[in-house]
Amino acid sequence: MARQGERPAWARWGLLLASAVGVWLFMFVVAPGVRRVPVVGEALDVVRELEIDASALFYTEIESFSRAELMIRESMSTQRNVLTDDS
């Protein structure tokens, strides 16, 4: 396991605090700042509006994939019907 035993306690806890501040700065200063860039803001507006989980790891975590799957499946089924009729 990673251990920082060589540093004094105050330095270790200070580093932890500094890291927490860094996370806070990223979340509430840097990220909102970047969002103000037009091309970024435009894309993220869509994500917010459609309530998409942009961090999903797998298709089962996204509701819109489920709708897309059903839509494509039924569309293909229509296609199969058309092909069968043609033949």
Binding site: V46, V47, D53, A54, S55, A56, I62, F65, A68, E69
Partner: peptide, 21 residues
């Protein structure tokens, strides 16, 4: 990332979302 595909697809439109998904 799968979630990012959904986001990018939705940005273009429904057909893009269906295909990318």
């Amino acid at each position: 990332a799968t979630g990012a595909v959904a986001a990018a697809g939705a940005f273009l439109g429904d057909k893009a979302l269906y295909t990318s998904a």
